[in-house]
């Protein structure tokens, strides 16, 4: 088991190196550099050149890459030129916010998606299944940012049930009950929006797993033992169908990143996604690079997590 995880981690290393290279190259290919637009046009080109030399911008790319990677490894992503503060400090609050948003989204995805998938799979081709499957097709077809806009407009502005921006109401004592409730209140609508669109994959996957498992020979064995239908479903069909979903968990992270980028922007929720878009628009490249690297890292770790979960839950690939 440990061997497997260690081996899997070793495989992850080259992925990380490739990821950092790609991010670095993309960043260097972007027009302009850290000094563009930051300096008074009246300053003499010699002075600029001096600055460039001082910042190491004239070094060969591999030295620049080396410097950058060394910094990143120490948690130094450079300076944000817009906020005039270290990128790391800037991201920390945003990361916490995005973490909570992702957590609540995942919670809703499974809390709603698993029952829907189970119902749909158990009564496949019945009316209830057709309704659920119909919904999943709609979900696939609806872009998240449009859906999020609609929910914001309907439940935020029209009904006024939910706040329409921010991550917490102002003027509350951090740590107090009101503060926490307000946080949750701010999370509910964006979280639900992500979940309602994000769960369609889970529902369809689970449904087809169940429909598939229902046909397996060992289900006949279970019935032949005299197991009532409810037990056949709970012990044999659902259990065996949910396990692949568990393995899918890591990949949900990738989906959440894409989700959060749009939804945070729409709900003006101060998370990493919103920061990402703002930074792109403002050409705050140090932040963009850091975020792309973090998103990539999250995706790689998600895949790693999936493999590890699968190796734990499925005895067939469990390695002793």
């Amino acid at each position: 088991m440990w061997k497997f995880i260690v081996r899997r981690l070793i495989i992850t290393m080259p992925q990380l190196i490739v990821l950092s290279l790609v991010v670095f190259i993309l960043a260097s290919m972007m027009p302009g550099d850290a000094l563009t637009g930051q300096i008074d046009p009246n300053i003499s080109p010699e002075a600029i050149e001096q600055q460039r030399e001082r910042l190491g911008l004239n070094n060969p790319w591999y030295i620049q890459y080396g410097d950058w990677v060394t910094g990143v490894a120490q948690g130094d992503f450079g300076q944000s030129y817009r906020f005039k503060m270290p990128v790391t400090d800037l991201m920390w609050d945003r990361m916490v916010n995005t973490f909570w948003l992702s957590l609540i989204s995942v919670f809703f995805i499974y809390a709603l998606g698993i029952p829907m998938g189970i119902i749909s799979g158990r009564w496949n081709d019945k009316l209830i299944d057709q309704l659920i499957t119909g919904y999943t097709y709609l979900g696939f077809a609806t872009p998240l940012f449009i859906f999020a806009l609609v929910t914001l407009w309907v439940f935020g502005f029209q009904f006024g049930w939910f706040p329409t921006g921010g991550s917490v109401a102002s003027g509350l004592e951090p740590g107090s009950l009101e503060f926490i409730l307000s946080k949750i209140h701010h999370l509910l609508l964006p979280g639900l929006s992500i979940a309602l669109i994000g769960l369609v994959g889970t529902v369809q996957y689970l449904r087809s797993e169940i429909v598939d498992t229902k046909q397996k020979d060992f289900i006949i064995t279970a019935r032949a033992k005299g197991a009532p239908e409810q037990r056949v479903y709970n012990r044999h069909i659902f259990r065996n169908s949910v396990l692949p979903i568990a393995a899918f968990f890591g990949y949900e992270i990738t989906m959440l990143i894409t989700g959060s980028i749009f939804v945070e922007q729409i709900y003006s929720y101060p998370g990493m996604g919103a920061l990402f878009i703002e930074s792109i628009l403002l050409r705050d490249y140090a932040v963009v690079t850091a975020l792309v690297l973090l998103f990539g890292l999250a995706a790689i770790l998600g895949a790693l997590l999936s493999d590890i979960i699968l190796s734990i839950v499925d005895p067939r690939i469990r390695i002793k």
Binding site: D217, F218, I220, T221, N240, L243, D314, R316
Partner: peptide
């Protein structure tokens, strides 16, 4: 049953 490879629950 006929096929012992599929007649048992693998998990």
């Amino acid at each position: 049953f006929q096929d012992p490879l599929t007649a048992l629950n693998p998990l």
